[in-house]
Design a binder for these strands. Structure first.
Length: 269
DNA sequence: ACCACAACCTGGCCGC
DNA sequence: TGCGGCCAGGTTGTGG
């Protein structure tokens, strides 16, 4: 369920724990969690490698190894990584566990089994198609305009497309569109200069606040991260925080979508 | 180009 | 309490 801010918070935590540590054990408990190479080779290649750094690209955790290879991890819907002592019992939802020198263990906990790990020699093998990082200095209203120009796609679908903007997911797209006052079904190419500026600013503000807060905690017990509280996500039938109109839920791009009919006018179409 | 739908999976919640 | 149906912060492949 994690999006960019949750992955960023996790990457920072893992960097402190794992940087400089050697992988001394590797247990693959659900084979399909290892996307590539084979589970057997994944284990063989990882054993003995030292983790140099842990970072993030889009929603991927990027672990740089001293061998020059990269361990990439995508948490998908329900993935999380728990740090425990290597003598603790392993939870039934843990799909891969890595023992580290120093006595800690990284448990890839993933009830729905959608998460994936990739061990690659060059990260573009997996990350090559990703779009712009929305918190980077490259992400400007002008660039956003270039990305949307001529597109007839609905703005929400486009923002969820990782090859366009990398790292946004359902929550932060919903929050950003509400903040910018843009209806999720607007044709992307129809946004004006002012709207591009507002949207760019809204995305940066929402993500920035969420990163600062360490991510969103929906209180559903699945992903407990930080203290960012969405303003409208999950709050259909509650009043809009800005105008008090009852928030409405529709489905856009096959995803539940909350918006305010008053603050986010449909325009036409 | 763009969209809808199914798959991949499990667990939590709600209503009957 | 039990059970069915629906929901879920993601991605990919297929077909219209």
């Amino acid at each position: 369920m994690p999006e960019l801010p949750e992955v960023e918070a996790l990457a920072r935590r893992l960097h402190k724990v794992a940087a400089g540590r050697r992988v001394t054990g590797c247990m693959v408990l659900w084979n399909r969690t290892v996307d590539r190479p084979s589970a057997a080779r994944f284990r063989r290649d990882l054993l003995g490698a030292t983790i140099v750094a842990v970072g993030r690209r889009a929603k991927y955790l990027v672990c740089s190894l001293d061998s020059g290879s990269r361990l990439l991890i995508h948490l998908r819907m329900s993935g999380d990584i728990f740090v425990s002592r290597d003598d603790q019992p392993i939870d039934p939802h843990v799909r891969v566990a890595l023992k580290l020198s120093g006595g800690k263990r990284l448990d890839f906990h993933d009830p729905r089994k959608f998460g994936r790990m990739y061990l690659v020699s060059a990260d573009h093998e997996v990350l090559g198609g990703l779009g712009v990082e929305p918190l980077s200095s490259a992400f400007t209203p002008a660039l956003l305009g270039d990305l949307l120009r001529g597109s007839k796609r609905r703005i929400k679908a486009l923002l969820l497309d990782q090859s366009v903007v990398a790292g946004l997911g359902n929550i932060y797209v919903i929050e950003s569109l509400w903040r910018a006052g843009i209806h999720p079904c607007r044709a992307a190419g129809s946004l004006g200069e002012g709207e591009l500026r507002d949207l760019c600013r809204a995305i940066r503000a929402v993500l920035g606040a969420a990163v600062k807060a360490g991510g969103t905690d929906l209180g559903d017990g699945v992903w407990k991260s930080g203290r960012f509280t969405p303003r409208i996500y999950g709050r259909e039938e509650h009043p809009c925080p800005r105008c008090r109109t009852e928030l409405r839920r529709i489905v856009v791009a096959q995803r539940g979508t909350v918006y305010c009919v008053q603050c986010q006018p449909a325009g036409r179409g």
